[in-house]
């Protein structure tokens, strides 16, 4: 098990390095005068040139990358070109915000999708058809439209929630819950639809197995057959989809944070990418890559716990 974990971590490190190198050179290839972008149309050419020198942009590209890399391996990801804030601070101050949304959406997805998937598989008939129709709709409707609709109805018209902004959990539990409710709902719709279909399919597969018939013939109550045995067998594929959804939700946080003006990683990613704030974009890419590596590792470990055959494989 330890060797497995170490192997996955080593692969993760290589992945992060490759992504960082690719990101650095792609962003530089996009070109443009960074100093001018920062200072705008009124700055003199001399001030722009000085700014570029200050940022080290007059150095050869390889030298710039070497400088960045030497700092990165020591945990110094540099400073945002546009705000002057250390990149590490910019990321750490926003990670909890994005994780609030993504973990919240994952939990909501897990609970609702399992309930709907089990219900559809177990009951069949019109219940199954309604769940399937809802899943198709949930997949088809763009998340940003859901978000805008939620804001208009529940924040603007009804005034139940704030339309924009974020309150941290440490400041106010109620404020935090109110701030993340609509974004989490908007973020969850698509993933609930996907995971519900997966749970339903896996449940139907498991329910057709011979051992289920054996369990029933031994007189086990249906609830024990379904929730103790069938669901556990169906959990593996569902977990894989949920893990993929978790990673997709990090991407989805970009539009949710933009629409709700939530100060998370997605919001800063949009700004930094459009501005060409290379140190900040690099930091974000590394942070998200690490998150993906860790999530995948945790899912692999959970799969092994759920299904001993996976451990042996």
């Amino acid at each position: 098990m330890l060797r497995f974990v170490l192997r996955r971590l080593a692969a993760g490190v290589v992945l992060v390095v490759v992504i960082a190198v690719a990101t650095f050179f792609l962003l530089h290839a996009a070109g443009g005068d960074i100093g001018r972008r920062i200072l705008g149309q009124t700055a003199s050419a001399e001030t722009v040139q000085f700014k570029n020198q200050q940022l080290g942009l007059d150095q050869p590209l390889l030298s710039q990358f070497g400088h960045w890399l030497s700092g990165a391996v020591r945990g110094d990801l540099g400073t945002s070109w546009f705000s002057g804030q250390p990149v590490v601070d910019a990321i750490t101050s926003r990670t909890a915000v994005t994780l609030s949304l993504v973990i919240g959406a994952t939990l909501v997805t897990a609970v609702i999708a399992v309930l709907l998937g089990v219900l559809a598989a177990q009951r069949g008939g019109w219940v199954d058809r309604v769940v399937q129709l809802a899943s198709v709709l949930g997949t088809a409707v763009p998340g940003f439209l859901v978000a805008i609709g939620l804001v208009l109805v529940f924040a603007i018209d009804l005034g139940w929630f704030e339309p924009t902004g974020y309150t941290s959990l440490s400041d106010s539990a109620g404020g935090w819950l109110a701030a993340i409710t609509l974004p989490v709902l908007a973020l969850s719709i698509g993933s609930i639809a996907s995971v519900t279909q997966q749970v339903r399919g896996a449940m139907l597969d498991a329910l057709r197995q011979d051992w289920v018939r054996t369990l029933r013939s031994r007189g086990l109550p249906e609830s024990r057959v379904v929730y103790e045995h069938v669901l556990r067998n169906a959990a593996g594929p569902a977990l894989s989809v949920l893990a993929v959804q978790f990673i997709a939700l990090i991407g989805g946080a970009i539009f949710v944070e933009t629409i709700f003006a939530i100060p998370g990683l997605g919001q800063v990613a949009v700004g930094a990418t459009s501005q060409g704030d290379i140190p900040l974009v690099l930091g974000l890419v590394i942070a998200v890559s690490l998150l993906v590596v860790v999530v995948n590792l945790v899912v692999d470990l959970l799969q092994g716990w759920l299904n001993p055959k996976v451990r042996r494989a």
């Binding site: 805008i148 804001v151 924040a155 603007i156 005034g159 704030e162 339309p163 924009t164 902004g165 933009t258 629409i259 709700f260 003006a261 919001q267 949009v270 700004g271």
Partner: peptide, 18 residues
């Protein structure tokens, strides 16, 4: 001072009394 990247977000904040 809150920063809004889009006009719609800005308008939402105004309409929501934020």
């Amino acid at each position: 001072v809150n920063v809004y990247a889009t006009i719609q977000t800005e308008v939402n904040a105004l309409q929501g009394g934020q």
